[in-house]
Design a protein around this nucleic acid. Sequence first.
DNA 1: TCAATGACCTGCC
DNA 2: GGGCAGGCCATTG
Length: 111
Amino acid sequence: MPSVDKNRFFEDVYELASLIPKGRVTSYGAIAEYLGSKRSARMVGWAMNGSHGKNVPAHRVVNRSGMLSGKAHFQPPSLMQKLLESEGIEIKDDQVQNFQSVFWDPSKELL
DNA sequence: TCAATGACCTGCC
DNA sequence: GGGCAGGCCATTG
């Protein structure tokens, strides 16, 4: 069984993802930075890997370019774009349009 | 224990 | 402005 510290990290990621406002997106790096480890951006993606089955809007999390890097991990992959579009976010070529406008920085917006 | 992998990020060419 | 290579952190075999 994993240690509690790691669970805390996962829980924080899930909670933060749940706090993302509708129609907004954030990046793995932003989440990692908010959690204290900017270098652990990859770990955030790993946490998202376990977000399946939970109440976590992983579709609102993209990489720093606004590209739906994790869409392939959805079921089906097109679900991510579908959900984002249904929230008012425009997607084109697996990329978030107006990324700057819809971007949500937890360390600044959430405070 | 060591080596390889991954839903990433930053820097350099 | 776009593309390529290196680096960080944690998990898994």
